[in-house]
């Protein structure tokens, strides 16, 4: 074996070492989220489905020359055809047009449910969780808010709608009001639990130690780390609200005839499915299912994409 001595070694040129360290291109957070989302086929499918449903709910009714309440008794119970794409019902109303006007109601309910969840749920849960354990007054605020949440939690949505009907007429407003009363409590509980947990994280302590303001601790440390859970919860609430609307309308407690809604249309068609007019139930039911699926698939993908730790 040859002898090894110092003269056999020489220092490496540092500049050459640098070249080899290939650094990843720098991207913004939302840019990365979009990229990750684009690679998730299921989420993408959900996203485009939602886009299509949304677009058609806006322009769909205008594609055929009928209005949702336009009746033509001579053209009742027609099969899907070039003239009536989704067929007609017993009063000769065009189902394509009615399905997409109904979509507006469903999406409206979904969006309102999301807004109520985000504003009321996140606010109440956030205040409750952030104040808890901070001082005696903070504990009291937390206790007070949580008791309210617990009381509301015990009242079923259906019951609230029925009770409201004592003083109000059944309809969209009643449903939205009932939703505002009870819809956000689940979110409030989840947000509170998350905040309680995140508050104990060392990075929150470090931020407090560095003199970061409460507002910044909430907006930079607490909320971003809860986004995933908030969004997942939303993707449950939105389709749930849409389904509740359909269900209540189906029972006759929701939107009233002649207004078109997926629930009322399904209800109208109940008696005639067995006599072969499948399209009258099929199309509204398909839309309910597709919307549910789209929200769930998209929400699931979004949750993954929002987490910077997940693989790209």
């Amino acid at each position: 074996m040859p002898e090894v001595n110092d003269s056999m070694f020489k220092p490496v040129d540092r500049s050459r070492l640098r070249i080899r360290t290939k650094s990843r291109p720098v991207m913004g957070y939302w840019h990365e989220v979009a990229l990750k989302l684009a690679k998730n086929k299921l989420a993408l499918t959900g996203f485009f489905l939602l886009l299509i449903i949304l677009t058609l709910s806006i322009i769909g009714p205008h594609l055929l020359p009928f209005t949702p309440s336009h009746q033509s008794l001579t053209e009742g119970n027609l099969k899907p055809s070039a003239k009536h794409w989704f067929g007609t019902d017993d009063l000769g109303r065009d189902i394509w047009v009615r399905v997409w006007t109904g979509a507006r109601i469903s999406l409206l309910i979904g969006i309102i449910a999301a807004i109520i969840d985000l504003i009321m749920g996140v606010l109440v849960g956030g205040i409750s969780g952030y104040m808890a354990g901070r001082s005696r007054a903070g504990d009291r605020i937390d206790g007070f808010l949580m008791r309210i949440v617990e009381i509301l939690y015990g009242i079923p949505y259906l019951l609230v709608v029925i009770l409201l009907m004592v003083v109000m007429k059944p309809g969209l407003t009643t449903m939205i009001l009932a939703l505002s009363i009870t819809g956000w409590v689940g979110m409030a509980r989840i947000v509170r639990g998350q905040i309680l947990q995140l508050k104990q994280q060392e990075y929150v302590m470090a931020a407090e130690k560095l003199g970061t303001s409460h507002f910044k601790i909430i907006s930079k440390h607490l909320l971003p780390n809860m986004m995933g859970i908030i969004i997942v919860n939303l993707t449950f609430t939105i389709p749930q609200a849409i389904f509740s609307e359909s269900f209540l309308s189906f029972l006759g407690l929701g939107v009233q005839a002649p207004t078109a809604s997926w629930g009322t249309m399904a209800n109208d068609s109940l008696g005639v499915v067995l006599s072969g007019q499948w399209w009258r139930l099929f199309f509204p039911a398909l839309m309910i299912s597709l919307t549910m699926f789209a929200f769930n698939a998209f929400g699931d993908g979004l949750q993954d994409a929002l987490d910077p730790r997940s693989e790209k």
């Binding site: 060392e202 990075y203 302590m205 930079k220 440390h221 971003p224 780390n225 910077p308």
Partner: peptide, 9 residues
């Protein structure tokens, strides 16, 4: 691991 916010650069 716990002392750095995973969502911040």
């Amino acid at each position: 691991q716990a002392s750095l916010n995973p969502r911040m650069k």
